[in-house]
Design a protein around this nucleic acid. Structure first.
Lengths: 340, 340
DNA sequence: TTGTCTCCCGACGGGAGACAA
DNA sequence: TTGTCTCCCGTCGGGAGACAA
């Protein structure tokens, strides 16, 4: 019997821990599935990575917005757009879930191939992909307190979380203790001493916790740990490799070249950098078109709220217009004005 | 009277310190000139940044090589090149010397405008630019020893360097001491206690040195400190913003677009990432063409050697061929084969 | 002249229960 | 039940001269 547990935490900050038990399947498959679970826990509840084989729309505008968010730079106005249409119907060739080595930011490397038929109304109907088989994992997150991050002592694990997610301690002992060996998304091992002490008694992670906090990332073989940062804080200080202008042109030229020669191209989707996905499943897009968005209509939208729980808000549409009608005529990208 | 001093150091590592005295000129000009001196000290003796107004050749091939070195990725073979020529004659519009925030790598942001006349033989002759006025600065570098980087004690400054570069100590005191306040290229202040102690006596930088070593970067108001890293160690772990394929296309599209519309474009020149400059002054290029490189000819070449001193080697040319004759026909980029 | 070692001592931080919200 | 404080004590590291290359 193997026990899996996943822990993810955030300085700002959320904390996720996850634990499950299952009987030896193919270890590689299990490893992969676990990786995906942890990746998703770090990505947050709102994120869905594209799936292999899926038919999707790729929005160059949205892609460029993400690049702008990554580089903190907006290229100047007079940018050529060539004759690129505002969305490109593509088949997802390949998806690799990845993590940035130093920031622990999760992202998906997506390879797309433009479809021969671009007219969305002439596309043969396809059923949405069956949901991926999921492993049963238990996890928790916690907003770190001052005491949790202080140099004195370790992380105080809420009783509920410890009971649900951590391997049980031998409570017959005077001071119940065990060592948790965990791995993060990079494959690095992190060890924590899980102890039940204090007056009154409480669950604590110490001996290794502070190293983890300062390093700000982790995951282990049987137990998993990851970092999910608060959405806002954006600590991206990218290297100056090419100018933002060249990046912009690179994105356009790539899409243009792929669309005209119908060859595959690769993009990085970073859900924590720009929350709006620029790769949208075909059927989802078509569904959303059916809804007749007009002024005055009420809608619901999901946000990541306190403690990274999913929250829903409702709003009212007050206007419909193109973001940039000159460059991207008739684009469906971000064209609703709403009031919450 | 103001005293300027410049210190740059390297983990691997070189150490540079520079000190000069001059009487109050315009502080901004002096600041700028000092910045340039420190930037050049960190860039190493072989690097010359392009100058504003200069006529230069821009080599897309070389630029792409640098991007590849920055991303550690080589894009796949079948890359479109469009109809871009192997070198573009440009006027340097603007040069801004910069530093990467976290790695302390120096680089130049260069804005170029393609010239109307591209034929190198029809260009009106221009004299090379007059050398920039330089301030008198004294600096030193030192390969750090185990003791220098150890947690016990500080940096041992060689007597020669202290005498030449550091403000003089009051040697009448029992234990001569002073505080050095320095600034790095980012404008951050670093303070060191400069003390003359030990038996026998020696110059030491302590109290602040270890913080500097761990932070790995610095410079101060009157005294300057910078970091020049060993050429090889390349600690670049770039963020995945766009695919290397898109970067490649971005570079090409930028050059192509600029050349065909004759509008300006911006590139980053990183001398420590790829030592071969891809922006070559026109007159230098023309001079080098005059030399008839044929097999068997002996030549001299400069390298950065031990302690980052400039070293010269001589070699013999054994072949001349195009690196990539299919994509870049008749390119003069890197086409000599040599034996040292 | 300068690199390494060792010794001294103060500061910092892991680890414990006390206590209060 | 859990966040903060404080106290204890061990470790780490700045800072000194000894010593040797």
């Amino acid at each position: 019997m193997t026990s899996y547990s996943k822990i993810a935490m955030n300085k700002r900050g959320q904390f996720i821990n996850n634990n499950t038990r299952d009987r030896g399947e193919g270890q590689n498959e299990a490893e992969q599935a676990l990786f995906r679970e942890l990746w998703e826990a770090c990505a947050g509840p709102l994120v869905t990575a594209p799936r292999e084989g899926e038919l999707v729309f790729y929005f160059p505008q949205g892609h460029i917005e993400q690049v702008e968010a990554s580089t903190n730079q907006v290229p100047n106005e007079n940018m050529p757009v060539y004759d690129l249409r505002s969305k490109i119907l593509c088949r997802v060739m390949n998806v690799v879930l990845k993590v940035e080595p130093y920031t622990d930011e999760v992202f998906a490397q997506v390879t797309l191939v433009p479809e021969p038929i671009q007219d969305e109304n002439k596309v043969e109907k396809e059923p949405p992909l069956a949901p991926l088989p999921r492993i049963h994992v238990r996890s928790f997150y916690k907003t770190l307190t001052a005491s949790d991050t202080s140099t004195h002592g370790g992380l105080s694990v809420l009783k509920r979380h410890a009971d649900e997610c951590l391997p049980p301690l031998d409570m017959t002992k005077d001071v119940p203790t065990q060592e948790l060996v965990t791995k993060d998304l990079h494959g690095n091992e992190w060890r924590f001493k899980h102890i039940y002490r204090g007056e009154p008694r409480r669950h604590l992670l110490q001996s290794g916790w502070s190293v983890f906090v300062t390093s700000k990332r982790c995951e282990n073989g049987e137990l998993r740990v990851g970092v999910r940062r608060a959405m806002r804080q954006q600590v991206n200080v990218p290297l100056s490799i090419i100018s933002s202008h060249s990046m912009y042109l690179g994105v356009l030229a790539t899409a243009w070249h792929a669309a005209s020669t119908r060859t595959m191209f690769t993009v990085y989707y970073k859900p924590r950098t720009s929350p709006v996905g620029f790769i949208v499943p075909y059927y989802q897009y078509m569904e959303s078109l059916k809804i007749n968005y007009t002024n005055g209509i009420r809608f619901k939208m999901r946000f990541e709220g306190e403690e990274a729980r999913e929250q829903r808000f409702t709003g009212t549409i007050v206007g419909i217009e193109d973001v940039d009608p000159k460059k991207w005529p008739d684009s469906k990208w971000r064209n609703l004005k709403v009031v919450l």
